[in-house]
Design a protein around this nucleic acid. Structure first.
Length: 432
RNA sequence: GGAGAGGUGGCCGAGUGGUUGAAGGCGCACGCUUGGAAAGCGUGUGUGCCAGCAAUGGUACCGCAGGUUCGAAUCCUGUUCUCUCCGCCA
């Protein structure tokens, strides 16, 4: 959430920003409750002060009757004030949580996702001497994907991934983990992108796939709940992205500045109900209830957050380029970046089988919007205590990147030419 | 799932219902001492909210949420997490 002090001082800017991001919130109403809450808070503090004075006069023992009576009177007043304060505070917090993060100044203003901006297009689309097929046609021929039996067992939007496709996924996973935990690779990416960032490797992580309500909400990723899977009988949800369980892992912690940046590479199965997408992208494994994903997450100082975001985008570009894929970098507009985001970039990768670019990556920069509720902070070298900035970004969503690999590297006979960088992880095989 | 023990400040660790924000120690910072360092000595060292230019003042916080009381870290209830034993289990 935003800092209420910032909202007080920039009410009209915050209101305008919310409107641009498509959120119907009333800053006036919020500030009204803020004022009410503070008045009640002050009243409560004054009553407590009186109470404390009285009780300290009785510390000896033998309570004096008149003081006890006065204490009782205060107790009753305080009880009423505290009830009102609690209600006012709950309303205040509920409204405050609705206010979206401020968009960075270079985020395009747009009312629909059609107003996202293609920042650049990179790489060559492959040319085929035959009509390219989509990944599902190829996968069926190769018996790599079984959705019928998955539907029988778990329902629609599930799949059994089989055979060489499993080996391909594990090869991609190893390639990414090795790349992002290697300082030379990171140094090269930073240098090529002309970014002055710390060359600190990512720590690979296998996180828990479930998360408590409180932390999910603090991450500002719980809503809309319709798109989350709730576990019956427990206060737990299935995570929709490793971001949710990585970003929350340092809640209530204070880093030393020298520990930052802290970079994680999570490998986790993500779960999404895909509510409201009935009939959309039903073919193949483009949109599933469950998919594996390699996700980057980092914690930095406020000074380094913005360039960390650019670094994450540069890493995404490196990974796509290294696999020989063509992609577009999309700068998302205000309505599309997301509520906790200050900035958001998507990567869309060329899929010959669909004859279009499709979203395969996203990079999110949240400034201190998440850390404010998570209470993840950093003790600066100066001694100052500050909220950290959080970044997350897709390294590879395995389903979609395998679609891209299959469709871009397909051969007429249904085999797949393995990208050179993956061959070492497939026993040197050049085709699958 | 059953039985028991426990969650106190950056860390360890005291704490009888009444100046307890919380003893003591460690760590850290600054100063003294020293040729320099160590040791020693001294001082300081939590966070949120509100008010204030500031110094500072008020208030809250001893896992979390309620309750009892004039007054709760201390008593009661619920809950959560950790540990030990039993059971079950990949």
């Amino acid at each position: 959430m935003l800092d209420i002090r910032y909202i007080r001082e920039n009410a009209s800017k915050v209101q305008e920003n919310a409107k641009r991001k498509g959120y119907d919130v009333s800053i006036d109403e919020l500030l009204g409750w803020d004022k009410t809450k503070r008045q009640l808070q002050q009243l409560a503090d004054e009553l407590r002060e009186k109470r404390n004075v009285i009780s300290s006069q009785m510390k000896g023992g033998k309570p004096a009757d008149d003081l006890v009576a006065e204490g009782k009177a205060i107790k009753e007043q305080l009880s009423e004030v505290e009830t009102n304060l609690k209600e006012a505070d709950e309303t205040f917090v509920r409204l405050l949580k609705l206010v979206p993060n401020m968009a960075a100044s270079d985020v395009p203003v747009g009312a629909t996702e059609d107003e996202n901006v293609v920042a650049k297009t990179v790489g060559e689309k492959p040319q085929f001497t035959f009509a390219p097929r989509n990944h599902y046609e190829i996968a069926e021929q190769r018996e790599w994907i079984d959705k019928e039996r998955a539907a029988k067992v778990a329902g629609s939007r599930f799949a059994y991934i089989k055979g060489d496709l499993v080996k391909l996924q594990l090869a991609v996973v190893q390639f990414v983990i090795n790349s992002l935990s290697d300082e030379d690779t990171l140094a090269k990416i930073a240098k090529d992108a002309n970014l002055d960032v710390a060359i600190k490797p990512f720590t690979p992580i296998l996180p828990p796939l479930m998360i408590r309500t409180e932390l999910y909400d603090a991450m500002d990723r719980l809503e809309p709940r319709d798109d989350r899977y709730k576990l019956e009988g427990d206060d737990l949800w299935l995570q929709g992205s490793a971001e949710h369980v990585l970003g929350s892992m340092h809640a209530d912690e204070i880093f030393d500045e020298k520990q930052l940046p802290l970079r994680y590479l999570g490998y986790a199965t993500s779960f999404r109900r895909e509510a409201g997408t009935y009939g959309k992208d039903m073919e193949g494994i483009l949109r599933m209830h469950q998919f594996d994903k390699l996700e980057m997450e980092s914690f930095t100082t406020g000074d380094d957050g913005a360039k960390e975001h650019l670094f994450f985008v540069a890493i995404q570009e490196y990974l796509l380029s290294t696999l020989g894929l063509s992609y577009q970098v999309i700068q998302k507009c205000t309505v599309d970046i997301g509520k906790p985001n200050a900035r958001g970039i998507d990567m869309e990768t060329w899929l010959p089988g669909q004859d279009k670019y499709r979203e395969t990556h996203t990079a999110d920069y949240m400034t201190d919007y998440q850390s404010r509720r998570l209470k993840t902070r950093v003790r600066r070298d100066s001694g100052a205590l500050e909220l950290v900035h959080t970044n997350d970004a897709t390294a590879f969503a395995l389903g979609r990147i395998m679609i891209a690999i299959i469709e871009n590297n397909q051969q007429e006979d249904g085999t797949i030419a393995v990208p050179a960088v993956l061959q070492p992880y497939l026993g040197g095989k050049t085709t699958l």
